[in-house]
Simulated assay, not measured.
Amino acid sequence: MANYFDYKIVTSSLIKAVKTLTGKPCIEANGTGEQPAYPFATFTITTPKIAIQQDDENAQFELTVSLTWHDESSLSVLNLAKQCESYFKSTEGRLLFAEKGVVIVDVTDFDRRDNFLSIEYERSAGFDIKMRVLDPHVDDVAPIEQIEFKNVIGGN
């Protein structure tokens, strides 16, 4: 087990869920790879760490992931966003992430996110998912078990 939280746990689960649910690809937003054919989803980890307790060993924290659908059709992106939003709010969707130690805390309502591309629009719609995870960090420093004090008042 890694000595830190691996964000691939979240992203691989998200990619798998979107592909299984819709049959469409889900890729990292603003990546350098080739864009898939429409429709497709993108994800961005918009807030990688929201502290909810002191950074101790095995501290919990939250993160926010944005999921956005892209297509040439407004109805297509609205339907795909609604389908995924409903899934991530469902028990089945939450269990998929719970199996990986990720708790879905909140799923926002989806909204339009259209982009103007030179002379036409790319239609997009999406929502955000807030998740809670456990950072398995363990400090490798040995604990101090005994402290010895010497009285050094007034000289040697």
Score class of each variant (00 low, 15 high):
28 E>Y: 06
79 N>C: 07
1 M>R: 03
28 E>I: 11
14 L>V: 13
121 Y>C: 00
70 H>P: 07
6 D>L: 04
104 I>L: 03
91 T>W: 08
60 Q>F: 15
99 E>L: 09
120 E>G: 06
77 V>I: 07
82 K>A: 12
56 D>G: 08
1 M>L: 08
100 K>Y: 09
129 I>N: 00
35 Q>A: 09
151 N>Q: 05
73 S>Y: 09
44 T>C: 01
100 K>A: 14
119 I>L: 06
74 S>L: 13
49 K>G: 02
99 E>H: 13
141 V>G: 03
97 F>T: 06
142 A>G: 07
41 A>T: 05
138 V>N: 12
66 S>D: 15
52 I>D: 01
61 F>L: 01
17 A>V: 07
103 V>R: 13
77 V>R: 07
148 E>A: 10
2 A>P: 14
115 N>P: 02
42 T>E: 12
56 D>L: 14
58 N>T: 06
94 R>E: 15
37 A>F: 03
57 E>W: 06
94 R>N: 10
26 C>I: 01
146 Q>S: 12
99 E>T: 11
155 G>F: 08
21 L>A: 02
85 E>P: 06
64 T>R: 10
135 D>S: 01
38 Y>P: 05
140 D>W: 11
98 A>D: 13
60 Q>V: 04
156 N>Q: 13
107 V>G: 04
63 L>Y: 07
82 K>I: 04
59 A>M: 10
19 K>V: 05
105 V>L: 00
19 K>Y: 13
19 K>S: 10
47 T>E: 15
82 K>Q: 13
117 L>S: 05
45 I>V: 15
46 T>H: 02
117 L>N: 09
43 F>N: 00
134 L>N: 15
105 V>G: 00
17 A>P: 08
19 K>R: 11
10 V>G: 06
134 L>K: 14
86 S>H: 12
17 A>T: 11
63 L>G: 11
78 L>Q: 14
100 K>F: 10
55 D>R: 12
150 K>M: 10
42 T>N: 04
10 V>K: 04
59 A>V: 05
104 I>Y: 02
90 S>K: 04
79 N>L: 08
141 V>P: 01
151 N>V: 06
99 E>Y: 10
35 Q>T: 11
110 F>R: 06
123 R>D: 11
5 F>K: 03
136 P>V: 00
45 I>K: 00
102 V>I: 15
31 G>C: 09
135 D>I: 00
14 L>C: 11
128 D>T: 11
106 D>V: 03
100 K>G: 04
34 E>I: 07
86 S>K: 14
